[in-house]
């Protein structure tokens, strides 16, 4: 994939923070990240893995110590002014002037980038804030603040939207709303880069995913491929005599472990083969359920490999 086909690309990106006392903390170490144009891309990693730092570097808010970055093929931060109009971003929590109304905040941003004022009404309507636009930002609920931040990103009509932990602190209805918005944006041909440590959230909306830990890329690609590449599927087996069944399956070379009153057959187990093996020994299955690996298990597996102890 060429850089022109990538919305975001980084190579060897590094960032080290130094405290006043001289203590060094490596936030990002040699990150290679590719986000294809179009669709939703999940950017996963435990807290402190370097997601927000990477996003801040892409947006020119933080200076990288080493490495290269590009947005739509344009090297950043050098050419960021040329491409920033195509990028809308919410980094961590929404940040606006609390004493101004939501509308006033958007009007100032719109004026700064030369967007006509009617666009403010459009994005307020689009994010269901039309009626509350005149209220002071400080009076907004967390969900409304998040919606206002999305409205702000839409002022530019961007091709790439970067959402950093967009559902932090939201109630279930708010989470669903944000998820729907991301899906809709992805479907409309835009690229959505969503960073999160909440795996279920990303799995539900993302087409592709990158998993990082300790500031390094651990895995990347379409969600199905990433899941398939790391965790084999398993089959849960219900049977009247689990001990006898476990012996039969183990003798056949399958990895079996007890899971309550059931057996979990791991590895490249085919359900039909399990049925056949057990039936030959007059052990008849009462339940046979393929258990698919999910992003969470892949994530935990990868981060455990790296000794990261991902938060759950």
């Amino acid at each position: 994939m060429t850089t022109a086909e990538l919305a975001v690309s980084t190579r060897g990106l590094r960032k080290t923070y130094r405290s006043i006392r001289g203590r060094r903390t490596i936030a990002v170490q040699g990150l290679d990240l590719d986000v294809p144009v179009g669709g939703v891309h999940g950017f996963l990693g435990p807290n402190g893995s370097g997601k927000t730092t990477s996003i801040r570097m892409l947006l020119g808010l933080i200076r990288a110590d080493a490495g290269t970055m590009s947005l739509f093929g344009q090297p950043v931060p050098d050419r960021l002014p040329d491409v920033v109009g195509r990028v809308g971003a919410i980094v961590e929590s929404p940040k606006f002037f609390p004493a101004f109304s939501g509308r006033k905040n958007l009007e100032l941003l719109a004026e700064a980038i030369g967007t006509p004022r009617h666009r403010v009404d459009e994005v307020l309507e689009k994010t269901s804030l039309g009626e509350r636009g005149k209220d002071k930002y400080r009076a907004y609920s967390l969900g409304m603040k998040q919606r206002l931040a999305i409205a702000a990103t839409l002022l530019k009509q961007p091709d790439l939207l970067i959402f950093d932990e967009p559902t932090n602190g939201l109630d279930p209805a708010g989470i669903r709303e944000i998820r729907e918005t991301m899906r809709e944006l992805g479907r409309s041909g835009r690229t959505v880069l969503v960073s999160s440590h909440i795996l279920a959230e990303v799995e539900q909306v993302a087409d592709t995913v990158s998993i990082i830990g300790h500031g390094r890329l651990l895995a990347s690609g379409p969600v199905a491929e990433v899941i398939g590449s790391r965790s084999a599927t398993a089959v849960r087996v219900g049977v009247a005599d689990p001990d006898a069944a476990a012996r039969v399956l183990a003798e056949a070379g399958l990895t079996v472990r007890a899971e309550g009153s059931h057996l979990l057959v791991e590895g490249s187990a085919v359900p039909a083969e399990i049925t056949k093996l057990l039936a030959q020994q007059e052990l008849y299955v009462s339940e046979l359920v393929p258990v698919r690996a999910d992003l969470e298990s892949v994530f935990l597996e990868l981060t455990a490999d790296e000794g990261l102890g991902a938060e759950r």
């Binding site: 960021l80 809308g88 971003a89 929404p94 940040k95 941003l109």
Partner: peptide
């Protein structure tokens, strides 16, 4: 106020120069 509310970061994502 821009630094204490963090809105300076938001502002710079609109005008990075």
């Amino acid at each position: 106020a821009e630094f204490s509310t963090g809105s300076i970061g938001n502002w710079l994502t609109f005008e990075p120069r």
